[in-house]
């Protein structure tokens, strides 16, 4: 009957293990697949990532040099970064915060600012 008492009392008198997110955050481990980004200046818009992407999240427009990823389709498998010939696709360890609208991430050559369009 009282097997749990020890655990419970120990818990009561030690610091809680939950964090008050977002005020306190934990450091990410290195190499965590948190989010995917592409450097538009390095990218050669070959389209290899689009071909190998298992979830068809990446669309590359070779003519206009636009690289688009739909983060709501992306499964963060990391295949694109693995096969990128210029290693321009990078995986960051930070997770993306929740958002209130489904926004695609667009990377375009020469235009440094981030453009956004609704899905």
């Amino acid at each position: 009957m009282f097997a749990m008492v020890k655990n419970v009392i120990k818990n009561l008198f030690s610091r809680p293990s939950t964090r008050l997110f977002p005020y306190q955050t934990r450091e990410f481990f290195p190499n965590v697949r948190g989010s995917i980004d592409n450097d538009p200046e390095v990218c050669i818009y070959c389209g290899a990532c689009q071909m190998r992407c298992p979830s068809e999240a990446i669309v590359v427009n070779r003519a206009e040099k636009v690289w688009t990823i739909n983060p709501y389709k992306c499964i963060l498998c990391g295949v694109c970064a693995q096969i990128c010939p210029k290693k321009s696709i990078a995986i960051h360890s930070e997770y993306v915060h929740p958002q209130s609208s489904k926004v695609k991430k667009i990377r375009q050559k020469k235009v440094v600012e981030e453009a956004q369009s609704h899905a």
Binding site: I9, N11, L12, S14, P16, L20
Partner: peptide, 10 residues
């Protein structure tokens, strides 16, 4: 108290 017993902030 319940939360603390479960190691939560509560």
């Amino acid at each position: 108290i319940t939360a603390r017993m479960q190691h939560r902030v509560g």
